[in-house]
Design a protein around this nucleic acid. Structure first.
Lengths: 169, 169
DNA sequence: TATTGTTATACTCTATAACTATA
DNA sequence: TATAGTTATAGAGTATAACAATA
């Protein structure tokens, strides 16, 4: 059809999310957060890596000799899910798995030199994606956003409380 | 085993997300947003309603006589997905579907009086969940969060730009 | 031929359960 | 018996494709 319907209940501005939902920080957080998660995952997978590769490598750099269970717990992913992630990272020579001689049930996971370099590449990728998505926000506003989100996340899960703020002592 | 492993690489504070990820507003937005989305959906489903019931009802109250396509577009859900949502809402007598006499392909969807009442109940439910999740934030901080998220969302999708801010004129 | 609503299908991410080897 | 890692399975949520009725 060439001429738009006259029956149309005047909505010259295109579809719009209901105003009361736009007024809800919770709705926006859920909606936007989900979309952001998908986009970031896709960016990493397009680059040929698991979506969790950056998280795992960043964790390994902070405290080496992690075991798979501690990695999974720290990143809040299931231990069974981590297996596939590490398989891929090991294939790409970014991490090494070797048995813990003190407890042969455990695998100690280490960053390789290649993994260390790739971690830096991930940081650049993450920065690029952040600039793309958070472009409308200044650096200061991004910091405000981060602090607000961090406080909410921390109240839900202690893993998101930075160590120096633990134990309110 | 009763005594915790001595082998443990000193980590007395429990597992923690890598600091550089905690510093990233994008990571937090994705992680927290996804968790929030799931929790909100569960809250609504526990109450016996589709997770999208509130969104649909809120939209219908603003501009009645919506057609299924315009509803789906406004809420950014797939038209095929909306079918099941409306089926449930209709079973619960919250909305009515009837054919558009001017174009018998279309269904005009309306709020029922019951739906109007339920919408108010949804508002209370949403407020309760918001207080639960955003508890650590003051009202002012929640408004800041909302504005930041709204700007980011609006830059990605025009549906999130409030009508009065459209067309920058 | 194009569009509305519908149904059917497939895909992704995640959660759960069962299995092995070690302790 | 309990734990670490692994594998297999099922579930939720979403996206895609095909279909009937109508324009």
């Amino acid at each position: 059809m060439i001429t738009p319907e006259i029956t149309q209940t005047s909505r010259p501005e295109g579809p719009c999310v209901p105003r009361e939902l736009l007024a809800s920080p919770l709705f926006l957080l859920g909606r936007l957060g989900y979309a952001v998660k998908l986009q970031v995952m896709e960016e990493f997978e397009t680059a040929g890596f698991s979506a969790y590769a950056y998280s795992v490598l960043a964790l390994l750099e902070e405290g080496a000799r992690e075991t798979q269970a501690t990695i999974a717990d720290a990143l809040k992913i299931d231990r069974s899910q981590l297996v596939g992630i590490l398989d891929e990272l090991e294939e790409q020579s970014l991490v090494e798995r070797r048995r813990d001689p003190n407890d042969r049930r455990r695998h100690l996971v280490n960053l390789t030199p290649t993994g260390k370099r790739q971690l830096n590449a991930f940081r650049k990728l993450a920065k690029r994606v952040e600039d793309e998505i958070l472009g409308p926000l200044s650096e200061g506003e991004r910091a405000v956003l981060r602090d607000l989100l961090l406080r909410v996340a921390g109240s839900r899960d202690a893993r998101y409380v930075p160590p120096e703020l633990r134990a309110t002592a």
